[in-house]
Amino acid sequence: METRQEAVTGTIGCATAVLGAFAGIAVWFPYGRTALFGAFEGETNPTDLWLGLPVLALGGAATAVAVLTAVQGRRRIAVGLAAATAALAAFGYAFDVLAAPQALQDCGSPC
Rank of each mutant, 00 (worst) to 15 (best):
P46A: 04
Q105V: 15
I25H: 07
G52F: 12
V27R: 02
G52S: 04
C14E: 12
V65L: 13
A15Y: 03
P46R: 01
T9S: 14
T47S: 09
F91S: 13
T85C: 03
L104W: 05
L88P: 09
T9D: 14
T69D: 00
F37W: 10
A83H: 01
G108D: 15
A35N: 07
R74K: 08
C14K: 05
L53D: 01
A23I: 05
W50Y: 07
A90L: 13
G52V: 12
A62C: 13
G60P: 03
A83E: 01
A89P: 08
A94D: 14
F40K: 10
A7F: 00
A64N: 04
G32E: 06
A78D: 04
P46D: 02
A90S: 14
T69F: 09
L49T: 11
V18Q: 03
W28Y: 10
G42D: 09
F22K: 08
L56K: 07
Q72D: 08
A84W: 12
F95K: 04
A87Q: 07
E41A: 08
A64P: 10
T11C: 04
G52W: 00
A39N: 11
A89V: 15
E2G: 01
A39E: 14
A90E: 03
L36I: 15
T34N: 10
V27S: 05
P110W: 15
W28V: 02
G32M: 02
L56E: 11
T9R: 14
A64G: 09
C107P: 00
P54F: 00
T47E: 13
A39G: 11
E41P: 00
Q102F: 13
A35R: 01
A62G: 03
R75E: 04
Y93N: 08
F22D: 02
M1Q: 10
A100Y: 15
L51D: 11
D96P: 02
L49C: 04
V71F: 04
I25K: 00
A78K: 08
A86M: 05
V71Y: 01
A23P: 00
R4Y: 09
L68K: 06
G80T: 08
A70R: 13
T34M: 15
R75G: 02
E2C: 00
W28R: 02
Q5D: 13
L68D: 07
L58A: 14
T69P: 00
A90D: 04
P101H: 06
F95W: 09
L49N: 01
A23D: 01
A70Q: 12
Y93T: 11
C111I: 13
V8P: 06
T3R: 05
A7P: 00
A87N: 02
G20F: 01
A26P: 04
L56W: 07
F29G: 05
A90G: 12
G38A: 14
F40W: 06
Y93K: 09
P30M: 09
A90Y: 15
A26Q: 11
C107I: 15
A82Y: 07
C111G: 14
C14D: 09
L81S: 03
D106P: 00
I77N: 06
A66D: 06
Y93H: 13
G52P: 09
A17S: 12
T11S: 05
C107Y: 12
A70I: 06
G38D: 05
V8Y: 12
G52M: 03
T63Y: 08
A83Q: 02
L49I: 02
I77P: 01
G10M: 13
W28P: 00
G32N: 09
T3Y: 05
